[in-house]
Simulated assay, not measured.
Amino acid sequence: MKYRSVFDIIGPVMIGPSSSHTAGAARIGLVARQIFQKEPTWASFHLYGSFAKTYQGHGTDVALVGGVLGFDTFDRRITDSLTIAKDRNLVISFHEEEAHMDHPNTVKIRLGDKLDTMELVGISIGGGKVEIKELNGFSLRLSGNHPAILVVHDDRFGTIARVSTILAEKEINIGHMEVSRKDVGKEALMVIELDQNIGKDIMVEVESLEHINKVTKIHE
């Protein structure tokens, strides 16, 4: 399916087939790219439910790839994302999965390069809004529609309080926060949605805390 303009598939005014299958898909891809923090050399997209049945006709494929390339939902380059991915030597693959998922518009994105891999599960809930449900084995609930930081840390007493204290001292309000861990005392993940973007200085301060392993920012 050939689109004349990005506005045929995604906002600001939805002319194309579905905000869930296009704008939402692009948002999930973009969140995956922001978390990975660099350009991957390969990406695989595992599609479930309605995504699996209609991803080519509704432009879900170009939207997902565009997001992974770092294009926001309004970026006109999304319509040419498959060609751009090829030009950048990004190897992509799509897999239609038959497993039943809780939400019909579900995608599992796997990204990687020679050094790192990442796996993320996201759902498109309508109107371009999304939720990230899983990241590298951690269960979470991240909207992707607000600035947020992901803090990978060791599960130790007081770590969450110290991160919260830094944000409070900087007058950064927390809109939503949750913690997931693989086991008691093992690696854990803080997901903190914020009312505003934060600067690199705050990121560095959080990352310098004891038992903090990595801090990643996701911005709207």
Rank of each mutant, 00 (worst) to 15 (best):
K2M: 07
F7T: 09
F7Y: 15
D8Y: 10
I10T: 06
I10K: 00
I10W: 03
P12Y: 11
P12I: 12
G16A: 12
S19L: 05
I28E: 07
A32G: 03
I35E: 04
F36Y: 15
E39T: 10
E39Y: 15
T41W: 00
W42C: 12
A43P: 15
L47D: 09
L47Y: 12
S50G: 09
A52P: 08
Q56H: 15
Q56A: 11
D61Q: 06
V62L: 10
L64M: 01
G66I: 04
G66K: 01
L69S: 00
F71K: 00
F71E: 01
T73P: 03
R76I: 14
R77D: 04
I78R: 04
I78T: 00
L82W: 00
A85G: 01
D87A: 10
R88E: 07
H95A: 09
E96G: 04
H100M: 12
M101K: 14
H103E: 14
H103G: 05
H103T: 08
N105D: 14
T106Q: 07
V107Y: 00
K108S: 09
D113F: 00
L115E: 15
D116L: 14
T117S: 09
V121D: 08
I123V: 11
S124M: 05
I125N: 05
K129F: 04
V130R: 00
K133H: 02
E134A: 05
G137A: 10
S143T: 06
A148N: 01
D154E: 14
G158Q: 06
I160L: 08
I174M: 05
G175Q: 12
G185H: 05
K186A: 13
E187M: 13
M190C: 01
D201I: 10
V206R: 02
E207W: 00
H211D: 10
H211R: 00
I212N: 02
I212D: 03
K214D: 11
